[in-house]
Design a protein around this nucleic acid. Structure first.
Length: 452
RNA sequence: GGCCCUAUCGUCUAACGGUUAGGACGCCGGCUUUUCAAGCCGAUAAUCGGAGUCCGACUCUCCGUAGGGCUACCA
C-alpha cells in the first residue's frame, strides 16, 4: 500500500478516443501497482459543452476496460469550494476582477484574472526530467468567468489539492499548462504534486489523435467486437513495455509490471493492424463457451440474438474455425453469414464450378469420384473428426493422383465445392466433420444429380 | 511567430558507454495445402544530420533539421 493518489480527468464534451483512454490506463496501472488510489474526475466546468451522454459514455468505456475508480465526482459539484477560494485570492489580491470587452459570443464583461508574478517556473517531470518555462508572457490569465464559473486551470489545482492527488498523470499536451497551475498552487498555499506527462498518441497522419482526423471513439471498438483485455493490452504497450519479451499481458500482469520509469518520451502512432492481431490473440485464449457468448454480445450492453437463428450443435463445432480466422467478433459474425454459411444452409451449386478446372471436358470422372467418396464416407463411424475423415479419404485422392489426371484436386475440389458451394471455404475434411455423415452424403448426392 | 517536448526497422519497441543493434505486428518468400484461413520456417528492414567528450557512443554535450504540443472567458 502507498498513499499515492492519481486521477483520470476527462471532459465530457465529446466521445473520447483511444489516446484519451491510454492516459486512464497508465494512471490506473500506476495506482494499482503502487497500492494507491485512482479517482475519476469529470471535468464539466464548461457547462455549455458538457453533455450527460458523453459522461455516461466515459463511464461505459472505463467499465468495459475494467478500470474501476475508487472515487468519482464532477467538478460542477465543487462550485462552492471554487467560489470560496476564488474569493480568497481576490481578497488577498492574488487575483482581481477585470473589466473586459467581449470578443466572442458568451464572453463576460467581467472575469477573474490571476495576478501573474512572472519569472521562471520549473518543475520535475517523472518522464522528462526538469522543465523550466518563463511564465511572464502568459500575462494575467483568466481563472474564472465569474465566482461560480471557475475555469479549467483553477478547478484542476483545487481538486488535485483537495483530493490529495500525489501524481498527475496526463498527456504531454498539458506540459505548457503546468507552470500556470503551479502559480495558482503557490497562491493558494498548496503543495505541487508530481507530474508525469505522457507522450501523445498520434493518428496515421502523425498528429494528435482526434475525431476530426478520423479517430474512433473507444466504444466503437467495443461495438466492433474487440475484447477489452486486448484493448487494455494494446493501449498499455503504446509508450510503455514491461522490459522483457512478453507481448501479451493480462490486466493482473500489467499491474504487476507497470512502472512509470519505463514510459517512452516520444509519441506513438495508433496502429489498428497491430490492435487486430492482439485482439485475435485474446480471442483465441477464450474458452469455446465464452467465445460463443461473446458472439451474441458484440456490444456487451445488449444481446444481438445473433446466434439464435443458427443450429447450436453446428455452431459449437464451428468455434475452432472462427478462432483461427476471425480477428474481431464482428468479423466472426460476418463469416458465419458468409463464407461459413454453408455449415448451416445447403448451398446452391453451379455445375460449372463443381468440376475441377483440369477436368472440365469430362464430367463423368467427377461423377465417379464423388460416388467413390460418398461410398467411403458411408462406411465411416458416426462420430467424426476432421482427422478421421482425412485418413479415410486421402488414400482415394492419392489414388487419383497416381492416375495423373488432375491429381488430388480432381477429387478434393469437387468434394469441397459440393459441400460448400463456395470458391473459398474450410477444407473438406473439416466441413464433413462438422456437417456430419448424413448431411454430407445428401449434399454429394445433389451434386451428382446436377452433373447428370 | 513565441515558448515547450520529442527523434532506433513501415509501425510498437529493446539495448540505461563495449551486442553481428534484439523482439513483436505488418510486408515479402518458402513449406504445408484442391481453395481460403491457420500453422511452421526464412528474408528484407532502423540508430535524422553535423560537431564534440571518451580507449570506445543508439546511449553524454552542443548546433542544426524534422515532427509534435501549447499559445481561449476549451479541457
Amino acid at each position: 500500500m502507498s498513499n499515492f493518489v492519481t486521477r483520470f480527468a476527462p471532459s465530457p464534451t465529446g466521445l473520447l478516443h483511444a489516446g484519451n483512454y491510454r492516459t486512464a490506463v497508465f494512471a490506473y496501472l500506476f495506482a494499482r501497482h503502487s497500492g494507491g488510489s485512482f479517482i475519476l474526475r469529470i471535468e464539466d466546468t464548461d457547462s455549455a459543452r458538457s453533455k450527460p451522454e458523453y459522461e455516461s459514455n466515459i463511464k461505459e468505456a472505463l467499465a468495459w476496460l475494467n478500470l474501476a475508480a475508487d472515487q468519482q465526482y464532477r467538478q460542477s459539484e465543487h462550485k462552492i469550494r471554487y467560489r470560496e477560494l476564488l474569493e480568497k485570492l481576490v481578497a488577498d489580491d492574488s487575483a482581481y476582477i477585470s473589466k473586459e470587452t467581449p470578443k466572442n459570443p458568451g464572453d463576460r464583461e467581467e472575469v477573474i484574472r490571476f495576478r501573474n508574478p512572472g519569472g521562471a517556473v520549473s518543475f520535475t517531470d517523472i518522464i522528462r526530467g526538469n522543465i523550466t518555462m518563463d511564465v511572464s508572457d502568459l500575462g494575467d490569465f483568466v481563472i474564472a468567468r465569474s465566482f461560480d464559473e471557475a475555469v479549467f486551470h483553477f478547478a484542476v489545482v483545487v481538486d488535485d489539492a483537495d483530493e490529495n492527488v500525489t501524481h498527475v498523470i496526463r498527456g504531454e499536451d498539458h506540459i505548457s499548462n503546468t507552470p500556470r497551475q503551479i502559480l495558482i498552487q503557490r497562491a493558494l498555499g498548496f503543495t505541487t504534486p508530481m507530474y508525469a506527462h505522457l507522450p501523445l498518441i498520434l493518428g496515421s497522419d502523425r498528429t494528435k489523435l482526434s475525431k476530426r482526423t478520423g479517430a474512433k471513439a473507444l466504444t466503437e471498438y467495443r461495438d466492433l467486437g474487440f475484447l477489452p483485455e486486448a484493448m487494455l493490452n494494446y493501449l498499455s504497450f503504446l509508450g510503455w513495455n514491461p522490459g522483457d519479451d512478453r507481448e501479451y499481458l493480462s490486466q493482473k500482469e500489467l499491474i504487476e509490471a507497470f512502472d512509470l520509469s519505463r514510459v517512452q518520451k516520444g509519441s506513438a502512432i495508433f496502429d489498428e493492424t497491430k490492435l487486430l492481431s492482439v485482439n485475435q490473440h485474446w480471442m483465441r485464449q477464450l474458452s469455446d463457451e465464452k467465445f460463443l457468448a461473446c458472439l451474441d454480445f458484440v456490444n456487451p450492453s445488449s444481446d444481438d440474438g445473433f446466434t439464435k437463428s443458427l443450429n447450436s450443435e453446428i455452431l459449437k463445432k464451428a468455434v475452432p474455425l472462427l478462432k483461427e480466422r476471425a480477428k474481431t467478433f464482428q468479423e466472426a459474425q460476418d463469416m458465419l453469414s458468409n463464407e461459413l454459411s454453408c455449415l448451416f444452409n445447403e448451398p446452391a451449386l453451379d455445375p460449372n464450378k463443381l468440376i475441377a478446372k483440369e477436368l472440365n471436358d469430362c464430367p463423368n470422372m467427377t461423377k465417379t469420384a464423388l460416388e467413390g467418396l460418398s461410398g467411403a464416407i458411408e462406411a465411416l463411424p458416426n462420430d467424426l473428426s476432421a482427422e478421421i475423415v482425412k485418413n479415410a479419404l486421402m488414400p482415394l485422392a492419392d489414388a487419383e493422383e497416381e492416375k495423373g489426371k488432375g491429381g488430388r484436386g480432381a477429387m478434393l475440389w469437387p468434394l469441397r465445392y459440393a459441400l460448400s458451394g463456395q470458391d473459398r471455404s474450410p477444407d473438406p475434411f473439416t466441413l464433413i466433420s462438422i456437417l456430419g455423415k448424413e448431411e454430407t452424403i445428401s449434399r454429394i448426392r445433389k451434386a451428382i444429380a446436377i452433373l447428370s
